[in-house]
Design a binder for these strands. Structure first.
Length: 555
RNA sequence: GCGCCCGUAGCUCAGCUGGAUAGAGCGCCGGACUUCGAAUCCGUAGGCCGCAGGUUCGAAUCCUGCCGGGCGUACCA
């Protein structure tokens, strides 16, 4: 509808110029928007105001000319008016909204999709938590935001690739292996000294136990270094399996799990360092290798290889991001926790240093999550290893509620996650509010089938014409906004927009339901209303699906 | 100190990238189930949009400076 009105304005503006009513045929960017107040019509434009300069005319004068061209017998527009400083308000004929419903039936599960992305290859890398411990709620937020963003981009015609980068090389993994090795010894009754900087959590015991069950005391037959190395690999593999299982319960699956160790083994890290050394972007100082990140906007240069010969994670990250772009992605998106924001300039530096366009690289920073129970913070003591894991949170409140709560905030604002609230099946927890619409409609349709013998819900001119109540027209208008909601959510990579849209749509439906009966004595009216509510259900289902939330028929 | 994020109703949060009278849920108070699912609906009250300037026809939104909170600022990840 917005497109229709925009085109109409452009057409008549050009015609007005040809008729010498306007002074110029170039027009400034203008907006078509839905006014907040119903009294201001269905749609309005600031065309007259923003074009006061281009036309050298008063806004109201411009508006008057446009309105005269539209006339009184337009097939879509019921009436127009000039308001305030020069807004033009459009009132749309109710019947003009009906085609939206047909569109929904025709496109069905694809309704709202677009080809905005034109098949561009885009990679979303998210979670990428180190496999040294269980996921917590903060990881969960990144996981859900990343996954839903990927789904939205996919719905908008991007060729999306989901990837998890596994930090399975380096010192942390050695520590993980050592921790398991020590716990293994303890399991065998040996008294061992367990250092503070080893991983303390119970999951380390579990892995040691698994190791014993599977390999017995095999690790005693090799040297300690070999044993620890084996433990590292064994433990990392186990952790990744656990992490993957948790993410699967959230409905998240990756196209690829990318191993840092494999990247190192491939020689790509070394070759990238050499390349930058040749270009003198990497230089030697104090026996270490430094990247000239400061020349590319970072605060200072960063170490790539330490004076003990060990590469930093930054070294791998440089190679990893080069590799992403080498794989042909037009854009790469990294979803990180906000505590990593200081890392952005150096990664960006490595990308621009290689001659790439920094616009290909975007970071979504999700703010931290405060886990609460009835308003009191739940201890997240990391050192003790005693914290509530993501898995435990999912088990307690359910996957749909967890996902929806994370998606009803902008990812950039800090989030209080209250376990007690998240468990409630009330309107404190809007996921049920939205799902209830879906279940309710299923229930009505079931009843129509069983008691009213209605088997077919499809377009019929006579019955659709019975859709006249203001609440009904309101619902269709809302449905018409769905595609642009999807497009904006994808463009700005803000899935919360879709979540809020669904809550608003649900509110409109519940209000309608409480005021009007769908199943009535009048068969045409009933058929029309069924046609409407099934369309509502389709949109609710489509939206929930993109957010990774289920759309139940019964609750 | 410097950098990034946040500050909107008692609480939790939106505010469509500058538009008309700033919204929703929860909570408070008062109503609606012999009728398609009350996990619902209807109504009342509640605001110097952190503060102060600036940009313009017009600012919660953009710019500058303060104030408060979080995070970051390693040859750690």
């Amino acid at each position: 509808m917005k497109k229709t009105i925009r085109q109409l304005i452009l057409d008549i503006a050009n015609k007005a110029f040809e008729d010498n009513k306007f002074n110029a045929n170039t027009f400034a960017e203008f907006a078509i928007e839905e006014p907040k107040a119903d009294a201001h019509g269905d749609l309005s434009t600031n065309f007259a105001m923003v074009n006061a300069k281009t036309q050298k005319m008063a806004p109201r004068k411009i508006a008057e000319i446009l309105i005269r061209y539209i006339g009184n017998d337009h097939p879509v527009i019921e009436k127009t008016e000039i308001a305030g400083p020069g807004f033009i308000n459009f009132f749309i004929l109710p019947a003009a909204w009906y085609p939206v419903l047909n569109d929904i039936y025709e496109k069905d599960t694809q309704y709202g999709f677009s080809d905005m992305g034109k098949g561009q290859k885009i990679q979303v890398e998210f979670v990428s938590a180190n496999p040294t411990g269980p996921l917590h709620v903060g990881h969960g937020r990144g996981a859900i935001v990343g996954d839903s963003t990927a789904s939205l981009l996919s719905a908008c015609g991007y060729d999306v690739h989901r990837e998890y980068y596994i930090n399975d090389a380096g010192k942390q993994i050695q520590m993980l292996g050592l921790s398991v090795f020590l716990r293994f010894q303890k399991l065998n009754g040996q008294t061992v000294d367990f250092p503070e900087d080893c991983y303390q959590g119970d999951y380390i015991h579990d892995i040691a136990k698994e190791l014993k069950e599977e390999k017995g005391d095999w690790i005693y037959s090799v040297s300690k270094d070999e044993a620890v190395a084996f433990c590292s690999k064994f433990a990392a593999d186990r952790m990744i399996i656990k992490i993957r299982n948790v993410l699967n319960t959230l409905g998240i699956e990756f196209d690829n799990w990318y191993s840092e160790q494999a990247l190192v083994d491939s020689g790509k890290v070394e070759s990238v360092i050499n390349k930058f050394k040749d270009q003198q972007i990497i230089y030697e100082k104090d026996d270490a290798l430094w990247f000239k990140t400061e020349d590319f906007g970072d605060e200072k240069d960063r170490v790539v290889v330490r004076n003990n010969g060990q590469a930093t994670y930054f070294a791998s990250d440089i190679a990893y991001h080069q590799d992403k772009l080498d794989r042909g992605f037009d854009r790469i998106i990294d979803v990180w926790g906000a505590d990593h924001h200081g890392y952005i300039p150096r990664i960006r530096a490595s990308i621009t240093a290689s001659g790439r366009n920094e616009k290909q690289f975007t970071v979504i920073l999700t703010q931290l999550v405060n886990l609460l129970r009835k308003g009191v913070p739940v201890s997240m003591g990391k050192r003790s290893g005693q914290f509530i894991t993501l898995q435990e949170v999912i088990d307690e409140v359910g996957k749909d509620a967890v996902r929806f709560i994370f998606l009803t905030r902008h990812y950039e604002s800090p989030l209080d996650f209250d376990l007690a609230v998240a468990k409630q099946k009330t309107n404190d927890n809007p996921v049920y509010y939205v799902q209830y619409v879906h279940a309710r409609i299923s229930s009505i349709i079931k009843k129509a089938r069983n008691e009213n013998q209605i088997t077919d819900i499809s377009f019929d001119e006579k019955s659709v014409a019975m859709i006249r109540e203001p609440e009904e027209i309101q619902l269709i208008k809302h449905l018409a906004r769905y595609p642009e909601t999807i497009a904006a959510s994808a463009e700005y990579m803000e899935p919360h927009r879709l979540a809020f849209y669904l809550m608003d749509l649900a509110a409109d439906f519940h209000a309608y339901y409480n005021k009007h009966r769908v199943l009535t004595e009048d068969s045409d009216l009933t058929a029309g209303r069924l046609y409407l509510i099934l369309a509502v259900q389709k949109v609710i289902r489509n939206g929930l699906t993109l957010l990774g939330v289920s759309a139940p028929d019964v609750m």
